[in-house]
């Protein structure tokens, strides 16, 4: 299993640097759409740098798990990101794991995130952990079913191979199975990245928060790693959606520099378009009651099941 060092380094840097910018863009656009000025898109970089420099306050009740969690969250998101093709189809770590490993790594990060939320003995953290694990549990089958649909069509769980096989037959992009799976994945994306209508990323110290509740006791560089990890995870999931379920323009192996440039442009364009959709959804919807979220996610599950069924019908 040899690594292409350039590909590896490039994608690591892209994940690290692009993720905060994307979060910043979404924040900025959301503010614009709501008639607020909003923070500049690159504000998130400054936030992270500031957090890294700050002193840390650690809860007296916290154990070693609390300090261990930020590294796990950060590294699992990064590792998962290296398995998803971003600009060219063979992702750097594609041989280390396909889509099952990506899902597994993100779940590992979530596991430690939730433990970190429980550790400082605050009721907020426990609440956040409980809700995070609940929502992810009901989002997981929908996500897996959607992924299975494309994996079955491609005959592989390797993300690069899925992307390439979808690309090779252009008509497959408008295949009902694909469209339905894409829709299901989009709902899952909203849930997994803590967006309205499932969670509100803008809240602090509110009884409805989920992700922020778990981070409440984190400060300094631990908070930086947690926030950064979360934004990398968001980028990974969005990349998964745009490059695996809609791999238009994705460069293949041994692509020329020009092809890579086109691929990069296509990737950024798709990413920004998806972000714009997320912004519109966030602005036009209200946050749901917690016990309405299962309805939304079961809709996603049904969409994914329909996608699967249509593979069966149209094959």
């Amino acid at each position: 299993m040899n690594l292409d060092p350039l590909n590896f380094l490039g994608q690591t840097l892209a994940l690290l640097l692009l993720a905060p910018l994307l979060s910043g863009c979404i924040k900025n656009w959301k503010a614009k759409l709501q008639n607020r000025r909003g923070p500049r898109p690159w504000q998130v970089y400054f936030d992270i740098a500031k957090f890294l420099r700050k002193d840390m306050v650690i809860s007296e009740h916290a154990s070693w798990v609390f300090s261990f969690a930020p590294y796990v969250v950060f590294l699992t998101a990064l590792l998962a990101g290296l398995m998803v093709p971003m600009i060219n189809a063979p992702a750097p770590l594609r041989l280390f794991g396909g889509v099952l490993a990506v899902v597994g790594l993100l779940a590992l990060g979530r596991f430690f995130l939730a433990l970190g939320g429980l550790d400082p003995a605050s009721a907020f953290g426990g609440m956040g952990s409980s809700r995070e694990m609940t929502i992810s549990a009901i989002a997981e089958p929908a996500m897996m079913l959607a992924i299975f649909t494309v994996a079955i069509t491609a005959g592989s769980t390797d993300l690069s191979q899925i992307a390439q096989s979808t690309q090779s037959a252009t008509w497959k992009l408008l295949n009902p199975a694909h469209v339905l799976a894409f829709a299901a994945m989009f709902v899952v994306l909203l849930a997994e990245t803590g967006r309205i209508p499932v969670d509100n990323p803008a809240t602090h110290l509110e009884l409805t928060m989920i992700h922020e509740a778990m981070l409440l006791e984190y400060s300094g560089r631990y908070l930086a790693f947690m926030e950064w990890g979360a934004s990398i995870k968001q980028l990974v999931l969005m990349t998964l959606l745009v490059n695996v379920f809609f791999p238009v323009g994705l460069a293949g192996p041994q692509a020329s520099v020009a092809a890579l440039g086109i691929s990069l442009a296509a990737y950024l364009a798709k990413l920004l378009a998806l972000s714009a959709v997320v912004v519109v959804v966030e602005t036009t919807n209200a946050k749901m009651r917690l016990f309405r979220v299962p309805d939304l996610l079961s809709t996603a599950f049904v969409l994914a099941a329909l996608a699967l069924l249509s593979t069966f019908l149209f094959q």
Binding site: L52, K54, M56, S59, H61, P70, S122, E217, G220, R221
Partner: peptide
């Protein structure tokens, strides 16, 4: 990849101190 967060720590947070305090 572990050196990535560690390097960031070394780069930015050398002066940062850690304090043990009650939970909010």
């Amino acid at each position: 990849l572990l050196p990535v967060p560690l390097a960031l720590w070394a780069m930015f947070g050398r002066k940062a101190r850690t304090r043990i305090a009650p939970t909010w």
